[in-house]
């Protein structure tokens, strides 16, 4: 199985809030979404576009991948304002049609050429966060080769569109999430898997719940997560990273399969009560690769933070007010 990029924990924040953006790189996120969209009032959107280039540099100092969430109604202006060196991806909340995705692709292609960015380097995320999006999702996922992340099928927007209360203690989104996950897998995209855990509080800052959610998601095939409050970053990373004992067990399974099963021409063998066949070996292999990718990401972030702090110290500034990278 191909290893996905490591985006275990991210924060979404209004790009026009300097307190959030200036400190974002210190939060140890794997990815950060700077929002042009719902968290930015209409009156602030032009300003948000003006500061985007600097914000991408600031937020990216800690090694996180930077995404900007654009507005469905301002595709050209937002893509143009957001696409600068250091940007990994653009996403559009409320992706309702394949035409919108194609339009994003066209503008990105043009901007990449104008600004000398590597062609195809900016990827796309599509969020089918409405019933209309779910109905259109098969077309949306195929609308551009840039589409890498595919999500939706729950949350505030979906609830609003369906007219349901949130946090009612049962899974209201089995169908749209199932459709989204299947379509994403069918077309080789990543999908934000979210196992239903009853939640009647609606708190966005609950660290323990975030850990349980992330751990459950990992067991269901999820590898990515995101939130709104810094409290949830560390628990999400912990929940989506294989613990050392699981990695060690996977190594034993893989070694057993290679040396005691496949090498002897057998289809399966038993290790401490566990039937080990090619599927179990593949699962162990994926887990080891994922753990390695997580460790590499952690190292990359650590190095990036050290370098940014060193730059600040050299410039005699405080860690909370970094210079632009």
């Amino acid at each position: 199985m191909a290893i996905r990029e490591v985006r275990r924990a991210g924060l979404t924040m209004p790009i026009n809030n300097p307190r959030f953006v200036n400190n974002s790189w210190l939060r140890n996120c794997d990815h950060i979404t700077l929002d042009f969209e719902d968290s930015v009032p209409q009156s602030q959107k032009p300003y948000a576009r003006i500061i985007a280039r600097e914000a991408v540099g600031l937020a990216g100092q800690g090694g996180a991948a930077i995404n900007i969430r654009i507005n469905q109604g301002f595709i050209e202006a937002d893509v143009t304002a957001a696409s600068w060196p250091g940007l990994s991806s653009l996403s559009m909340g409320h992706t309702w049609s394949a035409d919108e995705v194609r339009l994003m692709d066209q503008y990105i292609t043009r901007i990449e050429r104008i600004r000398g960015l590597r062609p195809g380097s900016i990827t796309l995320g599509a969020a089918c966060d409405s019933p209309v999006g779910t109905v259109q999702s098969e077309e949306i996922v195929q609308a551009s080769p840039r589409v890498k992340n595919f999500g939706g099928g729950g949350g505030y927007d979906y609830s609003m569109q369906l007219g349901v209360d949130m946090f009612v203690g049962f899974d209201q989104f089995v169908y749209p999430r199932g459709e989204g996950a299947l379509i994403a897998r069918a077309f080789g995209k990543s999908f934000g898997i979210s196992v239903h855990l009853p939640d009647t509080s609606g708190s966005v800052a609950d660290a323990e719940r975030s850990y349980l959610q992330a751990a459950a998601n990992r067991k269901a095939g999820g590898r990515g997560g995101g939130g709104l409050h810094p409290n949830v970053v560390e628990p999400m990373i912990r929940g989506l990273t294989p613990p050392p004992e699981e990695v060690e067990q996977a190594r034993q399974v893989l070694a057993f399969y290679n040396e005691q099963v496949e090498a002897k021409g057998e289809a399966e063998g038993e290790l401490d009560g566990l039937t080990v066949d090619k599927y179990e070996a593949a699962r162990a292999s994926e887990l080891i690769e994922w753990a390695q990718a997580c460790a590499e990401m952690d190292g990359k972030k650590e190095r990036a933070r050290r370098e940014a702090i060193a730059r600040q110290e050299a410039a005699h500034t405080s860690p909370g007010q970094p210079t632009t990278a």
Partner: peptide
């Protein structure tokens, strides 16, 4: 005040556009 994401008074529940829009619809 210039922000479109704010907590519901006395909680860590977040209000943004879809939460406000849902309230309007309801």
């Amino acid at each position: 005040r210039g922000t479109a994401a704010t907590p519901y008074p006395g909680t860590t529940q977040m209000i943004d556009v879809p939460v406000d829009e849902r309230a309007r619809i309801m």
